[in-house]
Design a protein around this nucleic acid. Sequence first.
DNA 1: GAGGGAGTTCGACGTTCATCGAACACCGAT
DNA 2: ATCGGTGTTCGATGAACGTCGAACTCCCTC
Lengths: 101, 101
Amino acid sequence: MTSMPQAPARLEVTSVLRALADPVRLNLVRQLIRSDAPIACGRFDTSVAKNTLSHHFKILREAGIIATHREGGQALNVLRVDEIDDAFPGLLRAILPELRR
Amino acid sequence: MTSMPQAPARLEVTSVLRALADPVRLNLVRQLIRSDAPIACGRFDTSVAKNTLSHHFKILREAGIIATHREGGQALNVLRVDEIDDAFPGLLRAILPELRR
DNA sequence: GAGGGAGTTCGACGTTCATCGAACACCGAT
DNA sequence: ATCGGTGTTCGATGAACGTCGAACTCCCTC
């Protein structure tokens, strides 16, 4: 086992902000917010190559913003809304208008 | 006149997040939040050289996070709390615990 | 077990970034 | 006019980042 560090023990402000500061990643997060069902890595609407996409997912995962669990040949991604809201209440709602109902 | 682009016309999410994602800059912003009076550039508690500090102030200014006005030989800095709150309601409070009363 | 779809890892490349020392520009006071 | 304090600009440097093609690993299905 190569040790799989899905998410950090505690969400770090600087890591979270830096992860969300990239246009491509922010776009991914927006798609996750708009969908209430998990989305497979290959199902995102994006322009970058699939290895680059994988890189961005890794950063989002390591920042603790998304969680990925394999299921039937594909990797399903979900936003860790509760954890983020716990650590930084109001952050998601602040930067993602689609969440300010 | 060299044209002085203090702040952008509209606050850009990605610029704001990237500006706040740096430890040194986040530290500066924290000091501004804790003080209700403007702080001169040279009065901040930081470890970086003064030219580097100037660089960070420039980024914060261009992102629209702080405003600087000269007064008596020194440059006084203030957080643009209202503008930030207007563009991204709850953002500051989310990432800066000292503001969550 | 052979094939194929889905993600990841591995260099590599070019860009952006944080940092610094040094030199500069500005301004208030002598 | 000169001095000293304050902040900015100018390269330069090393690290980190986004991007890619290619090769790899898993696992599901036939």
